[in-house]
Amino acid sequence: MKNFSGNILFLDRSDINTDEIIPAKYLTAISKDALKPHLLEDIRLDGFDPQKDIKGKNVIITRTNFGCGSSREHAPWALEVNDIHLVIAKSFARIFRQNMFNNGMMAVGLPSHVIEDIFSMFKGKNTKLETDLDKNTFLLKTNGQEQEVPFSISEFDHALVAAGGWLEYADAKY
């Protein structure tokens, strides 16, 4: 099973599309590793520097409709090769969300007010997140502050994460 804990990268915007996560010109890459330096290269986000701000981060927290647009699985792969296996948002585009779980990664939706609270409490601070998949909780920690956040994903999503992805799951079953 993949690692779902680590430092948080806050992307304070809605509707971040997969062209922004990984531009189409890199879709000619023959290996997933070739995507690594280009993650979020074209994102429109004031003050964000992909060269500096991605390094050492393992979890993304963002707003609504993350991963909209193109179906390219290069988007989750670009996250994966940068050791980011968990994205938390108010909502996701369908294909992106499915692509994450199909790779044994997680795209977890939280209620709007919870995301708002997380942004107001932790954005701009070095924050760590620990995922407990048995209790279905995230624990967010920064200097002197701590917050436990419950989440829920479906039985099927849990099964895909445990199997390591849809191919592993489907190959054993169908």
């Binding site: 179906s71 390219r72 699985e73 989750p76 294909i95 499915q98 692509n99 199909n102 790779n103 099927f156 992805g165 849809w166 191919l167 489907a170 190959d171 169908y174």
Partner: peptide, 17 residues
């Protein structure tokens, strides 16, 4: 539309979830 993993399972097994 689907991603590459769904496509891959589709090619191999002819199913999708």
């Amino acid at each position: 539309g689907v991603g590459t993993t769904d496509l891959e399972v589709g090619i191999l097994k002819g199913v999708c979830a």
